[in-house]
Amino acid sequence: MSLSDIWDVLVLGVVLGSLYAVIAIGYTLVYGVLQLLNFAHSEVFMAGGFGGVIALTIFEPATDPSGLQSALYVLLGILGGALLGGLVAFGLEKGAYRPLRRRHASRLIFLITAIGASFFLYNLAGKMFGRYPMPMPTMYENKQVFEVFGTSVNVTQLLIVVAAVLMLLTVDFVVNRTKMGSGIRAVAQDPEVASLMGVDIDKVVSRTFVLGGVMGGVAGFLFGTNLQVEYTMGFLPGITAFAAAVLGGIGNVRGAMLGGLTLGVVEAFTVEWFGDAWRYAGAFAVLVLVLMFRPTGILGERVGRTA
């Protein structure tokens, strides 16, 4: 395998990995505040994809958009994805998780609820919008933008990576530098003490879900531009992103980013070397190996509680 082949695969891997990183953030944020494996996050991702399609169907793109128009449509799609993703995540927390939290339910109960909610949501989406894959309306001409060592990078790939990096920076900023972020971190460390210090836990949890949901929704839209949107599209990327969050050390935001990128690159190389059939095996093999030697993931436990 020549060097340019490696670059080809690497570009694919980074594109995929940045998407995984953005989705993984949703898992890790929710895990941080609730110690909950939010299985239904993959459906938030799916909802984001549909949000993009809906927004772009309402404001039908011109047949041959260019320049400013394209940028506008992309923004519109991102907005649609973010809106629907955030809405679904918000509703999920309000409708399914809050009643459980009120009762201090055990974690397995949360997990089964999440699984049930996931079934419900993706089948509902299939029912509402039809059970067939739909392409994202064309927003721009997907041509080559530049080359890295002989590997061409097209608009979609560039869009995904740029948007993902921007979102990752935003999340990092929000979590580490804002008041809302300090609320999230406080609840993650110790909910009881946080509530004694005047943190409104319900609000923080709700906002965490929305933050993760917006990220997941935009990721869904970006994923849809790359491939297509379908009601079952959430499951496999969701599982992989979940693995990425665990790989990086669940509860740790930067760990999720690192884990996502790692798994994306690993997946791309697995496909290259072993064929598409093994796509998801490589990621899980790496996960199991890493966890064997570092049981709490690459970046370890989040600061504070060691549950």
């Binding site: 505040v33 609730l34 110690q35 909950l36 459980l100 939290r101 009120r102 009762r103 201090h104 339910a105 055990s106 974690r107 397995l108 949360f110 609840v187 110790d190 909910p191 009881e192 509530s195 836990i201 319900d202 923080v204 949890v205 509680r305 549950a307």
Partner: peptide, 24 residues
């Protein structure tokens, strides 16, 4: 066990701490 976990003592499974942040 579940009832005790709901009242705040112990966890009903070997999964580590129960989901926090609950303020009734």
């Amino acid at each position: 066990e579940l009832r005790m976990a709901e009242e705040g003592s112990g966890s009903a499974d070997a999964l580590g701490a129960r989901p926090g942040g609950a303020q009734a």
